[in-house]
Design a protein around this nucleic acid. Structure first.
Lengths: 141, 141
DNA sequence: TATAAAACTGTAAACATTACAAGGAGCGGA
DNA sequence: TCCGCTCCTTGTAATGTTTACAGTTTTATA
């Protein structure tokens, strides 16, 4: 996505397309690696010497509220961000700590307890071993 | 569950049933409100003046690793704990900030991307409005 | 180009979590 | 029951993440 397209998308959501916001959003779109605030800040900092970490926090909040990005909570120590706002699952490998996105079809979430509840968002997390690490662990035995 | 039963369950998992561990686990079982570390500490502190927050952290880690409890990540600022270790979903109401447990039947998580992956744990989160808040919002319009 | 509103920056504070060393409690063997 | 070893707890300090805030800068618009 070009800078202009990103700026346009921000405008649609009533977000002023400032340099910083465009850069942060662009970074998230280009790096589907679920970066943390610190990762984003460190990556963009050299290019923009006056770049501030507070701005990263503010920008991510704005993008979150607009529904353009998602917050992912994996380790419990740090919030990580995902430029892909579509519903998708996250697989977290406990061995290599890598995060894998996956599509899923949720059969039915039948449950009387939630009658009358309005679900606006849904997150599915899976934890375990990724393909590579599963093989490695097999070898080790 | 009695103190003896709790102690027994800890022993089964090779966890020394100390006073503090029993108290923390008991608290989680009796309060299915997904308390934070601070909530647990504040609640138990008056009864045990020398009780330490570090112990709460340590204990929760031990219980987590044994699979007796679960960590729930809702707000991103704070990890909260759940004495119910069975697989179940968490509904978080954005209006009243209440957490509701619910049972679910996950149809099929068909997805080629995860072939060869070993899933050991699964978390389903839903966000939106609970029954009460949904009605309140309707009224307000 | 002038103006008002909104954003950005940098520092400081708040808060959650972890590290660590010294003292204390639980457990098995005498 | 007592002893001694090991593990657990405690308290303080350090680390790391996130928020608050005031002053400056940038943006959108006329």
């Amino acid at each position: 996505m070009s800078i202009e397209q990103i700026a346009g998308r921000l405008k649609i959501h009533d977000i002023r397309p400032t340099q910083q916001r465009i850069k942060v959003y662009e970074y998230l779109l280009k790096h589907p690696t679920h970066p943390s605030v610190d990762t984003i800040y460190t990556a963009l900092s050299p290019e923009y010497p006056t770049f501030s970490k507070t701005t990263v926090y503010n920008t991510l909040d704005v993008l979150l509220k607009a529904g353009l990005i998602r917050a992912v909570l994996l380790s419990g120590n740090e919030v990580r961000y995902d430029g892909n706002a579509n519903e998708h699952g996250h697989f977290f490998c406990r061995r290599c700590s890598e995060v894998y996105d996956f599509e899923y079809v949720l059969g039915v979430t039948a449950s009387e307890e939630l009658e009358g509840f309005q679900t606006e968002r849904r997150d599915l997390y899976q934890f375990g071993l990724c393909r590579t690490c599963a093989k490695e662990e097999e070898k080790a035995i």
